[in-house]
Every structure is written in C-alpha cells, then in structure tokens.
C-alpha cells in the first residue's frame, strides 16, 4: 500500500516565552505514515502538537529538523499541495465573496478551465447543500453554512488527500452528521482523509487507523480495531490510558 503522507523524525522547536533560556519542543521525532485510501484520525489533547503537525504539513511552518512529505514530495515545495484539500478548524474565507465566487477563485488557482470549474462548482454546491445561498456573500452565512463552504473549497480540485482540522468542531448534531457522511463518501471514492478531532466516538466510527500524540511525541499508531481489541476498551478509554489521564473523581 502506498504511503501518501509521511513524516520522519519531525521536530519543531519554538523560542520559549516562559523561560528565557532555550526553546519549547512542540514536536519531538514524529514518525507518521498515512496510506492511500484510508481515513486516518490524528488525536491528542489540547497542546499535544496536532496543529503544529498540520502547520508543517501545509508548509506554514518549517520543521527544525526531520522531514515531511506529501505524495513523496517535500512539503516545503508548493507542488506538494497540488493534490490536497485542506479544511481549517475555523472558517477563514473572504467574507465579501459569495460561495460561488470563492469556489471560482480557488478553481482558478488550481488552473481548472472555465467548463471544469463550472461543473465542479455546481456539483460541490449541491453536495454541501448551499444551492439556495450560493450567490449570497459568505458573511451572511451561519457557522454551519460557512463550514460547508470550507468543505466545498477543500474539494474543488478533486484532491486525493484531504486534511481536516477538527472538521466538526462547533457544529450542531446535524452538521456533524453531514460532515461524517461526506467523509464516508470520500472514503468510498478511494480518497485519503487525514483529520484531527476531539470527538473520539466519531473517530472510532469513521477511521481506519489513528495516531495519538501527547506532548509532541507519538504515543501510538495503528488500526482502530487493533487498538480497541488490544486494550479491550473503547477508543476514548484507550486514548485516556495512553495519555496517562487519571480521573480525580475516582480517588
């Protein structure tokens, strides 16, 4: 099975604000492998290094050492991002544009022809159910609608790898269900999905494999079924055990 996303001994250091001396290690020797056509859940508590990993993968942040690649191409090269789609946790789009204009803008960036762009935009607007609002400025949209525009822009180039940063955060149960359905549909189409989430039930439902990081270090990486079988517990319990959480209520 071909590896689509890979990090080798990835290390990221920040100048520490708290202590005058030295640096803070955000990622320490992270080795990740994401195979083609799998849904991969990237888990960890807040501050574990999930977003830092995504920042490196998307070329926003250079690693201190180690390497990261997408489709075998170093992430520092823009061409590595030609076949990916990225959905940020919050909606960061030009709010004065309409959904249709925003999608057309991204379609031009990917070099889609006018006809291709028209077809793709029509299909995506239907997929995310925004037909009634496609010609309205994004600033008039609700949070859920903006998240769906985000999903549509992530899919505009028909990517082979999708990177989602907490795609269901802040959505109502129906919105979450829709996102989950879309991830499932992408999986059925043979796409690779790499996403971070705090919703462990959701991860357990849709993911083939997961990685759990804590304090910048990879704690475990493997298939959901194996992990659950090995620990004889659900993913939430596995997660809490791995990060060493002990409930204070028990004592």
């Amino acid at each position: 099975m071909s590896v689509i996303l890979q990090t080798d001994k990835l290390r990221v250091e920040y100048p520490s604000r708290e202590s005058r001396q030295g640096t803070k290690v955000a990622l320490n020797g992270l080795d990740l492998r994401v195979n083609a056509s799998e849904v991969f859940g990237f888990l960890g508590p807040n501050g574990a290094g999930k977003t830092t990993t995504m920042n490196v993968l998307l070329g926003f942040l250079p690693p201190t050492s180690g390497t990261a690649s997408l489709f075998g191409i170093d992430v520092r090269q823009p061409i590595a991002r030609q076949r990916i789609g990225y959905l940020p946790e919050n909606t960061y789009y030009y709010k004065f544009l309409t959904a249709e204009e925003l999608l057309r803008f991204y379609a031009r960036i990917f070099g889609l022809s006018q006809t291709e762009a028209d077809q793709r935009i029509e299909k995506l607007i239907k997929l995310v159910e925004l037909g009634h609002a496609a010609k309205r400025p994004i600033k008039t949209y609700s949070k859920g609608m903006q998240q769906r525009v985000g999903l549509a822009q992530a899919l505009i180039n028909n990517p082979d790898l999708l990177i989602f940063d907490e795609p269901t955060s802040g959505l109502d149960p129906i919105g979450r269900m829709k996102v989950r359905e879309i991830i499932q549909r992408l999986k059925n189409e043979g796409k690779t999905v790499f996403f971070s989430s705090h919703e462990l039930g959701e991860v357990e439902t849709v993911c083939d494999r997961v990685a759990i990081i804590h304090q910048g270090e990879l704690k475990v990486q493997g298939s959901v079924a194996e992990l659950v079988a090995k620990h004889q517990a659900n993913l939430e319990k596995v997660f809490l055990d791995i990060i060493g959480y002990q409930s204070q209520l028990v004592s």
């Binding site: 998307l58 823009p78 590595a80 990225y86 940020p88 960061y92 789009y93 991204y106 990917f110």
Partner: peptide, 14 residues
C-alpha cells in the same frame, strides 16, 4: 489577521 492566508497557502501558491 482574518487568517484567509491559511487556506490560500494550503493550495499550491507561493
């Protein structure tokens, strides 16, 4: 500030 740079640079844009 509005973080629109992130989805933009996540595309093949230099």
């Amino acid at each position: 500030e509005q973080r629109t740079i992130f989805p933009l640079l996540a595309k093949p844009v230099t």
